[in-house]
Design a protein around this nucleic acid. Structure first.
Lengths: 126, 126
DNA sequence: CCTGTAGATTGACTGTTGTCGATGTGAGTC
DNA sequence: GACTCACATCGACAACAGTCAATCTACAGG
């Protein structure tokens, strides 16, 4: 999963002609798909709140998610599955319960992949 | 849009009882919704590649997106609209064409909102 | 004005996703 | 071994999102 960036100093298009500049796409299709997949896992309010609980608690079993998130047991199970498949959380079966914890590197990777411009700075060429 | 984090040292749940710990959700529902909205805008491969083109070129008019992204004109228009409504790009109508550019602060805000654990570190309690 | 063009909007279609009730599964418990 | 409990899976349904053909809008140039 490479960064969106990759090139940053290509010729800026003309203001009057707007001809066929045949721009190449810095982000490859495969990388875009992979990144979009993780972002899709993140792009749900229930899952974001779920993540926030897991992050805050360090470790949470599924039974402790149902009530604070106000969703049914199958729905919670669905969301943990989505997050786990995206590599954002990891489940640990201990005894009767499944304990979930954040995979911090994964979230870092997402953040890094979103670095289009180094920390808020921007400048096409000038 | 606050960070997912917010608390990080709450009592870790017991391993045997798993009682009603009544976890509070650090991320408020409104914040989760707002963050999810921006992430939804990002969670599409075509839009990610579109962003990468805009970021690389500095400024791009819509007509230069259609071909490299392999999508029809209405589809490109749809995607630019989604990104613009999420505040991730800004459009500038100059003459016949609309020129798009990144709103870097917005992307930075998303990255910042995803800081659950300070840069890859983690540790529930010890 | 009339025409050509950039691109926004509409409408329709399809595939995907969030949700829950019902049911299955597999590990503890008596 | 039967029961219980935590969780996964299934089936169904409604809402949403990506796509394009067709159409509308607005601007530029004659």
């Amino acid at each position: 999963m490479t960064a969106i960036r990759e090139a940053a100093l290509l010729p800026v298009a003309d203001e009057t002609v707007c001809g066929p500049v045949v721009t190449e796409v810095p982000l490859a299709e495969d990388d875009a798909l992979a990144l979009a997949a993780v972002l899709s896992a993140l792009a749900d309010p229930v899952r974001l709140r779920l993540l926030s609980v897991v992050a805050a608690q360090g470790e949470v079993c599924s039974c402790h998610l149902q009530e604070p998130l106000g969703r049914s047991q199958p729905t919670i199970s669905h969301h943990t599955r989505v997050l786990a498949e995206a590599g954002l959380i990891e489940g640990d079966k201990r005894g009767k319960w499944t304990w979930w914890r954040i995979v911090p590197e994964r979230l870092s990777a997402v953040r890094d992949a979103l670095v289009v411009i180094p920390n808020g700075q921007h400048g096409p060429a000038g």
